[in-house]
Design a protein around this nucleic acid. Structure first.
Lengths: 332, 332
DNA sequence: TTGTACGCGTTATCAT
DNA sequence: ATGATAACGCGTACAA
C-alpha cells in the first residue's frame, strides 16, 4: 500500500496525492476529495520512514529517564506528551533503569531515529555521554545536567534550598538523629540531594548525628534500606528520603517493626508525587513541579512552541516544603 | 553524516560499509577494521528511517495501553521490553488515557511506523478498530480482546473465576452488603470485572445487596467513587475494587471518613501490583501475572522468540486470590 | 572479497 | 492545478 496505489486509484500522480496528504494549498477541491476517497478506500497510511527520510524532519521527541516506574518521571512524561501533542508531536520514552549500558543504547536509538529533540532526565549520565549528545546536533535539554562546556539548555532544581528547608523543619521539631535513605546511582553526579543533606547536616549546631543508607529506587528499596538502618543499631528519630517512591517502603518497614510514624520516627519524602497524599500516614515532602518541567522541556525543544526562546534558558526550580502527617515532634 | 561519508573516509564502497554494519559474512578483517575506525571517527550512526525503508523490516514493537500510570500496565510494559531486548528489539508505548481519539491516533502512528508487531491492552477498543488493526497486516496480539471474526492471538484472563473467588471469599466472611468500584471506560466491552461482579452477586443466595460506583482509573478516582458511595447512604461492609490502583484511593477515603479497614469495611483490589503490599493495610487482591503476559506477548509477536509458535495461541490466565490485611469478617 | 546500481516510499523542485 | 523526477540514506542482488 503506497502512494502509487493511491495515485493510480484516484487517477492522479503521486505528487498530487502527497499534496493532499500534506494539505498543500493548490489542489482543486474535486481532485482533493477523489484522492481522499482513494485513501480511505485503500485504508492507506503514509510510511513514516519514507516520509522523514524524504522530508528530513521528524515530529518525534525523545525522553530519557532513569526509572519510569517512579511516578515522578511518569508525571514529567505526561506533561511533555500533552505539550507535544498540541504541537502535533509524539514522544517516545526510554527508561534506563539506572543501567549505563541501557542509557548508551537508548541514546544510540534516539540519534538513529533522528528525533526532533531529546529531553534527558537521568542523574547517572556522565559528561562524556552528555557531550556526545549535544555534539550530535540534536536539540537537547537536560534536567539536572552535569556541567558542560557548551552548555545546552538546562532545567535545574535547587536541591540545596529544598534540603535545607527539610532539615531545618526537622530540627525545629527537635530531631537530632537523622537518617538519609537514598538510591544507588552510578557515580555521575553524586546524588545532589544526598550531598546536600550531608553538607547541611554536618554544619548544623548543635551537632546532629546522621547515617546514610542506599538501595534501589523503589518502595522495596526503601524498605530494605530501612531494615539495614535499624539492623545497624542506629535509631533515627527522623528519616529523610531521597524521594517519595522510596519513602513508601520506608514507612512500611517502620510500621512492620512496630515503630509508629510519626510517633516514633518521622519520615520525609521528596517530589510530592500523587501517591504521597494517599499513603497512611500522608507523606510530608518537598514539591517539585513535574508538570512545569515537562512543559518547559517541550518549549525548549520545539521551535514552534509558544514558550520557545531561541537562546539556552537556564531555569531553576525551588522545592517547596509540604507538611503532612508523616512528621512530628521528635520523641524524647 | 551518511554511509557515503564513512565509505569515502575508509576508502571503500558504501556496500562494504553496509556489510560491516550488518556484520555480513564476507568482509576481510583488515577492511572491516578500517571501516569501523571511520565509523567511530565520524561518530556515525545509521539513519534508522533509511534502514527500515530499504530493508523493509523493523525491529520495534508497539505497546498500546489504557493508562500507563497504572502500575499494572507498567509492569507488562517492562516485561515486554525485557523480553524484546533479548531479541534485539525495542518497544514503544502509547497510553490512551481511555480516550478513544488517542487510541485511534496511536494506532495510526504505529501503523505508519510499520512496527514489527503491536501488543494491545486497551479495554476500550472496539471490534472495528481491532479489526482494522488485524487487517492492516501487522502482527498483533491482544489482551482481553473483543471477539473478532478472524481471531488474532489473544491472551485472556478468566475474570469470571477470579471475581467468583473474591465474592465467595467475602461471603464466607459474612459480608452481605457489597459495593463495586470500577472505572469509566468507553463502552467496548462493558468492563468484564464489573459485569462478572454483578452476575455473581445477583445469583448469590441468600441475596446480597450491592451498589456500583465508577470514576477515573486512579487513586483519586477510587476516593471520589467511595465518597459518592457513602454519600448515597449505602453502607457496604465490603468494597470490591476493579483494581488495586483505585483501591488505594478507596482505602484512603474510608480512613478519612473515620471508617476502619477492615474493621468497618473490607476492601479488595485486583491485579496484585507491587504497591498493594506497601499500603497500610496491605491489600487483599487477585493476582494477575503481568510478567507472564508481557513475555507471552513478545513470544507471540516476534518470530525469532524462543516461545514463538506460528499458530494463534489462546492463553487463559486465572487470577489467584491473595489474602492480606484489608479484609476481615463483616461487622455485624 | 568488493563495487555498482537499483529500489524502498515519500517530499520537493521543476516543468507543463 | 497537476505531472515528471530527482533526491533522501540505506540494503542488496548482481557483477567483477
Amino acid at each position: 500500500m503506497t502512494l502509487d496505489d493511491v495515485a493510480r486509484r484516484a487517477g492522479v500522480s503521486t505528487a498530487t496525492v502527497s499534496r493532499v496528504l500534506n494539505d498543500a494549498p493548490s489542489v482543486r477541491p474535486a481532485t482533493r476529495s477523489r484522492v481522499l476517497k482513494a485513501v480511505t478506500d485503500l485504508n492507506y497510511l503514509p510510511n513514516e520512514h519514507a516520509r522523514t527520510l524524504a522530508g528530513g524532519r521528524s515530529r518525534v521527541l525523545g525522553l530519557l529517564v532513569s526509572n519510569i516506574e517512579n511516578p515522578f518521571f511518569l508525571d514529567i512524561y505526561h506533561a511533555l506528551e500533552d505539550a507535544a501533542r498540541t504541537l502535533a508531536h509524539e514522544v517516545v520514552v526510554a527508561s534506563t533503569g539506572y543501567v549505563p549500558e541501557h542509557l548508551a543504547s537508548s541514546i544510540q536509538h534516539m540519534r538513529a531515529r533522528r528525533l526532533a529533540g531529546i529531553a534527558v532526565i537521568v542523574s547517572e549520565i556522565d559528561a562524556d555521554l552528555a557531550g556526545q549528545l549535544v555534539h550530535s546536533g540534536m536539540p537537547t535539554v537536560f534536567y539536572d545536567a552535569p556541567r558542560l562546556d557548551r552548555m545546552p539548555p538546562n532545567i535545574a532544581a535547587d536541591y540545596r534550598t529544598g534540603m535545607h528547608r527539610c532539615v531545618e523543619y526537622l530540627r525545629g521539631l527537635g530531631h537530632r538523629r537523622l537518617a538519609f535513605v537514598g538510591h544507588h546511582t552510578s557515580l555521575y553526579p553524586l546524588n545532589a540531594r544526598q550531598a546536600h543533606f550531608v553538607e547541611i547536616v554536618a554544619k548544623a549546631r548543635p551537632a546532629l548525628e546522621y547515617r546514610i543508607e542506599t538501595s534501589d529506587d523503589s518502595p522495596e528499596g526503601g524498605r530494605l534500606a530501612t531494615r539495614a538502618l535499624l539492623a545497624s543499631g542506629f535509631r533515627p528519630t527522623a528519616i529523610v528520603c531521597v524521594n517519595d517512591f522510596m519513602a513508601i517502603g520506608v514507612v512500611r518497614e517502620l510500621l512492620d517493626q512496630g515503630l509508629g510514624v510519626p510517633r516514633d520516627v518521622s519520615v520525609t519524602g521528596f517530589d510530592n508525587i500523587g501517591l504521597s497524599s494517599y499513603t497512611s500516614p500522608r507523606l510530608t515532602t518537598l514539591d517539585i513541579p513535574r508538570a512545569r518541567i515537562g512543559t518547559t522541556m517541550c518549549d525548549l525543544l520545539v521551535p514552534e512552541a509558544p514558550g520557545h526562546t531561541g537562546r539556552p534558558t537556564d531555569i531553576v526550580i525551588t522545592p517547596e516544603l509540604i507538611v503532612r502527617e508523616s512528621t512530628g515532634v521528635a520523641r524524647s
